[in-house]
Design a protein around this nucleic acid. Structure first.
Lengths: 214, 214
DNA sequence: GCCGCCTCTAAACGCATGTTTAGGAGGGTA
DNA sequence: TACCCTCCTAAACATGCGTTTAGAGGCGGC
């Protein structure tokens, strides 16, 4: 394993655990060298982050593809990956990188959205997901919400070690699974009044789908 | 308006716009004095933040109560407040403070959850909201998700002025309203299989409510 | 043996931060 | 006038950061 790769791995772990504000010296300590050396290797902290982004996003995308194959076709969310210890550091990194903003993170979200659009389109066609009036907006909403939620959790828990990171992640999943599934299967509003009122407000016809009133 | 109050107002505005990492000098410039003076007035940056938290959370809570009265009983979310220009800085501050963590923010989330539990309980009893198997978990999930989402948006948009903050907030609301309402009224899964599988997995009976199988 | 190269460290540098310190300006009071 | 108190600034200070620099140490090639 090259020094570069080792430093990058340490950086991903430390960034994921402490956030992108983590110091080069903290990463250097984790990787067993000095901060100066990291700059020599990568040029700057920002370029190190760029490489971490690229690497992590690649790992995540491949993991999702793998998981989809293993689950014969059903799509995988980040939360699914977060349940696998092996992927916890990567998922944490994604949340923290996305939270820190920057071009790379924006690109990653866009890519996740595009990927998910495919899956969702297929699932809608197959009849397992309800269609949306704006598929892209829905997918983006769900993606950003879950990422933002996870980022919030990590900020709050402020895990001090890889172990604490894992247990924080597990607690997060445990806390959201039931309400998320409930919400996903039935929502929580008993009727369409608020939705129809909004559709009317934005000028869309409230649909003749089922119960057209207005 | 006392100097303290003026500084606190500037701090809320700057923290909301730039995040809690904003420097005392930036706040001082906004308030028309020096960083040293702020420390003399508040003791430390952390105490300044504590006072901002307290003040903002009070404003938000009162605003929600007001809005609930005006809307004769129907509960108000942070997103509702975010649509009113006057409250934009406060909503932004809440998102950034909560994202930064700390005791005060944790307490605020807890308080929001408890408040919402009341409203949701009433609405369930009144038949406008579907019940949940775990009301507290549901309310917490929704609260944290929307706050996290908003925090993510602000991190990404990085508004440079109060104007940009307002337009960022407005864009956020515009982007989420439709998918959120769709999700809230119907979810997106066509059947209960995932939910039932999970209920089985955690040992809860999948309910005899409607379609009991297993 | 010596040169060159690569890896790496230790120390320094410049900068921004929160905080402290010394003191100035103005107003009220004796 | 002299004193004091409050509000405030300007400068200094300590700290931590990313980054730069000078050089040490090992190792292969000629």
């Amino acid at each position: 394993m090259s020094t570069r790769a080792r430093v990058r791995a340490s950086a991903v772990a430390v960034f994921g655990r402490d956030g992108l504000g983590a110091s080069l010296r903290a990463i250097a300590a984790e990787a067993g060298l000095t901060a100066g050396r990291i700059v020599q290797l990568f040029g700057s902290k920002e370029e190190l982050r760029r490489e971490c982004d690229e690497h992590v996003f690649g790992v995540i995308r491949e993991a999702k593809r793998d998981a989809m194959v293993r689950a014969h076709g059903s799509a995988t969310t980040l939360e699914h990956l977060a349940m696998i210890d092996e992927y916890v550091p990567y998922v944490a990194y994604v949340a923290r990188s996305v939270q820190a903003g920057g071009e790379q993170a924006r690109a990653f979200i866009d890519h996740m959205v595009e990927d998910a659009l495919d899956y969702v389109g297929d699932a809608v066609a197959a009849g397992t997901l309800l269609p949306s009036r704006d598929e892209r907006a829905r997918v983006r909403y769900l993606t950003e919400s879950s990422l933002g939620h996870l980022a919030l959790r990590l900020s709050f828990d402020a895990p001090q070690s890889a172990e604490e990171l894992r247990s924080s992640m597990r607690a997060h999943i445990d806390a959201i699974m039931l309400p998320a599934l409930e919400l996903y299967t039935q929502g929580f509003l008993v009727d369409r009044r608020m939705l129809d009122a909004y559709l009317l407000y934005v000028g869309d016809p409230p649909e003749s789908e089922q119960a057209a009133s207005a």
